[in-house]
Nucleic acid binder design. Sequence first.
DNA 1: AATTTAAATTAGAATAGTTCTTGATCCAAT
DNA 2: ATTGGATCAAGAACTATTCTAATTTAAATT
Lengths: 139, 139
Amino acid sequence: MTTHLPHPHHPDVPEEINGLRMTRQRQEVYRFLLGERSHPTANEVFMRIKEALPHVSLATVYNCLEALVQHNAIRKVNFDREPSRYCPNLAEHGHFHDETTGTIHDVKFKPGISLADVLDLPPNTVIKDVEITLRGQLT
Amino acid sequence: MTTHLPHPHHPDVPEEINGLRMTRQRQEVYRFLLGERSHPTANEVFMRIKEALPHVSLATVYNCLEALVQHNAIRKVNFDREPSRYCPNLAEHGHFHDETTGTIHDVKFKPGISLADVLDLPPNTVIKDVEITLRGQLT
DNA sequence: AATTTAAATTAGAATAGTTCTTGATCCAAT
DNA sequence: ATTGGATCAAGAACTATTCTAATTTAAATT
């Protein structure tokens, strides 16, 4: 089944991102993530965009998220084996998981610091992706 | 069903680790991990220790691994949402995932470096656990 | 040494996030 | 308008892990 909804113009979301055609569903997913700092799960995205697209399916949300990740529009973030979360912050950063509240906060690097300065990497290593996760409490 | 196997003395594995009684199953799991640098999954541990304990169950392997993690005898390591892997290296270190071969290498910090020197942590943050994952290629 | 009690183990069922399948629908280009 | 490839929807399938219930083991006590 399809939505048969009009395809309104969303001036804040372009027609295309890094070569990915922005369908109505992808727009809603992306637009919601842009306004969220809470690193929502696929299911949370699903629940939220159903308000705008009542017939959207969870599989489509997964498809949209995966497409956006593949085209470097968003990042997928994992904590242990909890449900994956999605993050529109493309700058290199880590994630602090506050165990008291369950909330997740982006953590920036101090200016001028690169991971290679810190880690004893094997020679001839090409790093394509870095993930830094911190767990603890805000007191 | 039970093994009815004798409980041989393994001089390289103590009777107790950090207050955790080392049953035969826990000994086999722990001993195998100590000799492995490949960060095996629960299933890989299971397949391997079946040679010594033919009647061991996968649930028991999960129980043993969890008990060892809880008592700080080993570490649980996650890459995205792939099956969890287990690591006997207790020193603070990261993991480099070589995408070409699929192998995982421990990565040490450069001496004298602490994460707090590198990250812009919010004030009043108590860090209980850090996980650093790198993905890339060895050329 | 027998009894009691708690912990550990096992086998299989249950769970949950994610992926897959299939058919329908949309969209761009002819 | 038609065609062909991409996208979507609904639900089934998959899989790593956890849970349940029953059994067995080990430790503590008599």
